[in-house]
Each structure stands twice: as structure tokens, then as C-alpha cells.
Design a protein around this nucleic acid. Sequence first.
DNA 1: ATCACGCGATCAGAATATCTGATCGCAGAT
DNA 2: ATCTGCGATCAGATATTCTGATCGCGTGAT
Lengths: 303, 303
Amino acid sequence: MITLRQLRYFQALARFRHFGQAAEHCAVTQPALSMQIKELERELGVDLVERRATGVALTPAGEEIAGRAAAILAAVRELAETARRRRGVLVGPLRLGLIPSAAPYLLPRLLKAAALSYPSLELLIRESQTSALLEELLRGDLDAAVVALPIGEPEVRSEPLFEDPFFLAVPAHAARAWSAGCDLAHQMSQERLLLLEEGHCLRDQALQFCQMANVQARRALGAASLATILQMVAAGQGVTLLPELCAEAEVDRGRVALIPFPEDPPKRVLGLVWRKSSGRVEDFAALAALIRQARAPLGASSG
Amino acid sequence: MITLRQLRYFQALARFRHFGQAAEHCAVTQPALSMQIKELERELGVDLVERRATGVALTPAGEEIAGRAAAILAAVRELAETARRRRGVLVGPLRLGLIPSAAPYLLPRLLKAAALSYPSLELLIRESQTSALLEELLRGDLDAAVVALPIGEPEVRSEPLFEDPFFLAVPAHAARAWSAGCDLAHQMSQERLLLLEEGHCLRDQALQFCQMANVQARRALGAASLATILQMVAAGQGVTLLPELCAEAEVDRGRVALIPFPEDPPKRVLGLVWRKSSGRVEDFAALAALIRQARAPLGASSG
DNA sequence: ATCACGCGATCAGAATATCTGATCGCAGAT
DNA sequence: ATCTGCGATCAGATATTCTGATCGCGTGAT
């Protein structure tokens, strides 16, 4: 008799093409996974994988079965989802991903608000870059994610959360020189522009803005965190574009000054995304409200 | 973690609305089924059934989950089917239903031919009336069935196997009186028409013919088998319509005579039917060929 | 009112299924 | 030739699932 356990293990194996890694992903030992795969092959009477010295390859039958298994497992997930939906909104586990340039600034208040308004909600947080979050979302390893919109992925639905305008962060001692002039673009071209490393959407957005504004700043090598970048700004090593969301937590007003853009300020739009097929719309609407609330704790204006 | 076992047990419970019967259908004891249902309810956090003194009722959540469970179990069946299909045509188990007026006359040669041509085919035979066969077919308890066409069921596909003309079976001593005259309809109206009991398609076909031919024979109470009916014919208690398929096995030529209809002979069309969603078309084509072959063992004509 | 019955829940122990940790053997890489 | 990574295999441990007996409750009959 076929079991879901077999299908789950096989799905992992199809993904990693490696018994050991698949087993680890399933939180079992490699022999356990091997046995279940073998049992599934025996049930079906077909070889699903080729065990070759160079690695594991799916047979044609394995490819087809893997697809069907994925569909079945998705249907089981949805079954569980519809059941949980009957218990009310935002109850039970919800796996939420956030991008690094949002997570540390939203989470403290989000988690507090969640505990308050939805005590039986169990938020499981994952922080990673947009591309990884989307992969996991589509794979079903995440239920929703907070990313910068738009994301061009047909299987994903999204709802905008709020606009997050950029400021120019400069060393405090240079603040006067910047705030006076209106030709920020020209001034920026003289500076070193400090950015996060490859893969961060914030980096791409900053570069895109520079292109539009015709700014040709010298770029530094990427940094792994905004905290580091602002330390570098404070030390006079360059300037950076900083989302308002991050300002409060990251900016030491004595050492770094934030220059607003006088007109048509660059901004990003943060949004909540989820699988089109998810069917937890009520959950996500409530979660979106919670996140908006977490952003502006005291009804602060968004200027 | 949800298991297929839980879904299988719950499907049975949803069908029988009775823990004991559902358990029996699943070939386990009632406590085993109760535990799995309870575990499923715990997993999902929802009550699926109301245990009331008067019986078991599905909750609204139970209704929805039952539907999803059925879809999942069907997908698992199809997964297993596609795997088996890769092993070749007509291998492994195939659950075949046949109507009572065909089963005993097709089976001997069908089983012999199957064993010869498809030694790894494991035919599981079920004999019942059309309505029961169709139910089981749609429920997935049967893979295919041999019934009289047409069947008006949109979820079912069919292929005609062969035409099976009817003869009029009369007592041997009365044969001359019948074979002479051409006005069979008039003669039949004088006789008692012996039929199978309610529910047999053969009964309906005979009655339909009589209506068309304007025959108003007196009807006897139904019998459970053609063998009984032919004993009664031999004893002079009446006449009956007998499909050619059954003639060889049932007719004692010394006691019963078969009168062919001179023109436009009544007939039935036997066909093979299966679920539209089945996807074992190759199997069914091969099986149809096998059944046709079983009908005419020596290339006998169908006159 | 009482009884008997059908039905599902519950429980302890038995039977299975599954997993772990150790080990083996093979094929490429060094 | 040796080493290394990987999957298979095995015995024993563990967890799950099942059985058979029993319980409690509500229902319908007497």
C-alpha cells in the first residue's frame, strides 16, 4: 500500500538527487529514506531512480511519478489548510519569509502585535533574499513572504503593504553640504555608493534609481548588512540609500544624517506574497493588516 | 502528519456512516478505524463526524474534507496506474466486473486465454448487476466491467465487444409449432414469459422487445438464474428470450429448442466500460480483444 | 421502568512498520 | 594503490498500528 511518507521521501529525493541530503531534509537517517524509496519502487513495480556512482538520476517513470507525487502532496497540504481555516483566521503555524532589509525592522513589533491579537498564531520566520523566498514559497516550504514588489511570478499573488521611501544617508559632518544643494544626483556622482552584496533587492533598487537619476557613483564592494554599511557611512567611506523602514533602528543621528529627496523621492513598495493556489486569503489579509500596524506603531506619518 | 491510511479510513466512514461497517470494508477492526479517525481529527483540529446515538453524520468540515480526500485517493490510484502501465499491457491486478448473464459464459475461456496471453495478469472477477457494477466502477472498486450497452453515465467510457442476438427458447416438444409459423409475436402472447428477477438488464431487454413487438405475454415471477429459467422452459412452464452467448452452456438440446427470429432479430450489445479518468486505455483495448476472442473460441460465426 | 441491544470509545498487550547506528562494497578521485 | 563519498544492508531499538476484550451510553422493545 502506497503511503504519503513514501511520496514525501521521494519528493525530497527528486529534489536533492542525493539520498543523504534528502534524508536530512526529511529529518531521518539515510537508511530510512532508502528503505522507503525501495518499498515505493517495489509497490509500483518500477525503478524510480538510477543509483549511479556519479549521483542519483530519475528514470522517466521517476520523473512522472515525482510530478504526480508533488500534486498529491500539494492536495494534502490544501486539505490541511482548509481544515485549519475552519478554526478561524491566523491560528496554528504560518511560515513567513522576510527579506533581510525588512525582517529586523518589522519583526519586533510584528511578533508583539501577533502575540497580542492572535495568541494561537505560531509564526515561523525565515529570513532570506527574494529569490530564495520565492523558491521556497512555490515549493510549499513557506506560506507567505514579505518582499519588495513587483515580483513577476504567475503562480504568486501579492498585496502591497506600504511604500517605503529612500533617504540618502551621509556622514553627519557632511550633512550641511548635502542638505543645502538640490542637485543630489550630481553630488552623489562624486561619492562612493555603498551597497549590499549581490542578490539583495535593495541593491538592485538603489542601482536602478541611480541609473534613472543618471548618477554614476563609484561603487564599493557589497556588504552583508545595513548595519555594516551605516558604520561605513559614519566613518566617511561613502553614502548609501536607506529605506525609511530601516532608519530608526540603524541610524545613529550623531554620526549619520538622512537627506530626504526634495521631489519624486525614490521608494520601494513592500508587499505580502503567497501562492496563488493557497486559499488562505483571510489569513493573509489579516497578516497584512498586522504588518502595516507593526510598521507604524504610533500612527507616525509616512513622510 | 496526515497519512493516506487516515484518508482511506475516513473515506470508508464517509461512505458507510458507520464505524463498524467502514472498518470491515477496510479489513480492520472497529477500534483501529476509530483511532485513525480520531487522529485525523486531532491533526486537522476539526471534528469530522458527529457521533450521535442514531448514527454517524459528517460535519460540514467533514463533508469538505471527504471530497478532498477522495480526490487525493483517486490521484494516488492514478499514480499507481501510470507506474504499472510502464510495465506493459495487462500486468498486475485488474478488477473486472461482469453481469450475471455474461459472466459464466465468458469466464471459462476468458480466464484461459488470459492465463495464456498475459500470464502476469491477475484478473479479480466480480459478478453483479449493471447498477452495482457501475457504482463500484465509479467508486474505484472496479477497473472495468462487461455490461450491456448503452449505459448513460458521463463519467464512463465504453467500447462495444460484440452483438449478442436473442433466440426464443421453447420446450423441445413444441419446437415444430414454433419454427413453422413466422408470427412469433402472436404466438408468444399466448405463453408465459419467463424472466430473471428485477434488476437484471436481460429482463429489461426482453420486456423492451416485447413492447416493441407488441407482445403481451403473461409474465412469471422472476428467477435468479438462466439455468433455472431453462429448466422451467424444459418443463413446459413457459418460454424465454435467450442470448446466443448463453445458449451453448445452458441449452439441453433434447429438452429445449431455440427458435431464431426470422427478421430483425432482437439482440443486445455487450461492451466493456471503464472510468473516463482511468488512463488504462491500452489495458482495456487488449482486454476487449481478449474477451472477443473468448466469445468465439473456434472462429464460430455469430449467426 | 427495565431490559437488551447496537454502537462507538477505551485500554492493554501483541504485531507491524519504521528508524537508527554500524558496517559493507562499489566507483571515482587523488 | 589508497582514499573518499555514497547508497545498500543488517540487527536491534523504537514507534505506530492493530486486535480482542470491555465499557458506557442511548434507543427501542416489553
